[in-house]
């Protein structure tokens, strides 16, 4: 793929991923929504999780199907996931809690699903910061190790979702299953390459 072509695809990806939020904001502005803060919270949270899983799907898809062209999108997807996670947290802090930091501390300390979500967000923060080529170079092999933290962030994000629903577990369990598959593929790959090395 040419550089210009890749740029165009990247731009299209960003626009496509931002579209659901833009549409929700248009509807909120039109006064269509009874509880827009809740809608924005749910949408940003769900898209953060979707994009996180999408970023985790890039490497397995590349390995299994040889889709090498996907590789450059991993960072974009990861950063979009972080962007939605940031908006999710900001919506909660600003619009839901009204910057009441005592309430934030209480929520994080006492409510397990918020503890999990908050931890997932904190784990994503250093990954977003070190996502640049410069940091990749500087950290070398340690960069890969650091970025394995994303598995923990994904697991915490899924737990956050499972623990917050009232009765209908379908959606969170679907995400849990997807995450399990993606991590399973990785575990399988790691096990095979270790065996290959041991055999050699």
């Amino acid at each position: 793929m040419t550089k210009a072509g890749r740029m165009a695809w990247q731009a299209a990806l960003v626009i496509a991923c931002a579209a659901p939020l833009a549409w929700l904001i248009v509807r909120a502005a039109g006064g269509e929504l009874a509880e827009p803060v809740e809608d924005i919270t749910h949408l940003t949270g769900e898209w953060a999780l979707r994009l996180l899983l999408a970023s985790l799907a890039v490497t397995p898809l590349r390995r299994i199907f040889g889709w090498r062209g996907l590789a450059p999108f991993r960072r974009t997807l990861g950063l979009l996931a972080f962007g939605y996670a940031l908006l999710h947290f900001a919506t909660y802090l600003a619009l839901d809690l009204g910057f009441d930091f005592a309430a934030l501390a209480e929520d994080v300390g006492e409510r397990l699903y918020i503890t999990a979500g908050f931890a997932a967000f904190l784990l994503l923060l250093p990954l977003a910061i070190t996502s640049t080529r410069g940091w990749q170079r500087r950290l070398g092999r340690r960069w890969l190790k650091l970025h394995r933290v994303v598995y923990a962030a994904g697991a915490l994000a899924v737990l956050h979702f499972i623990w917050l629903v009232k009765a209908d577990l379908r959606d969170p369990l679907l995400y849990a299953a997807l995450l399990a598959v993606l991590l399973g593929v990785r575990a399988h790959h790691a096990w095979r390459s270790r065996r290959a090395r041991a055999g050699a």
Binding site: A28, A29, G31, L33, P36, V37
Partner: peptide, 10 residues
């Protein structure tokens, strides 16, 4: 309605 609903305090 509209954006003002976003900033309604609880």
């Amino acid at each position: 309605s509209g954006f003002s609903a976003l900033f309604e305090q609880k």
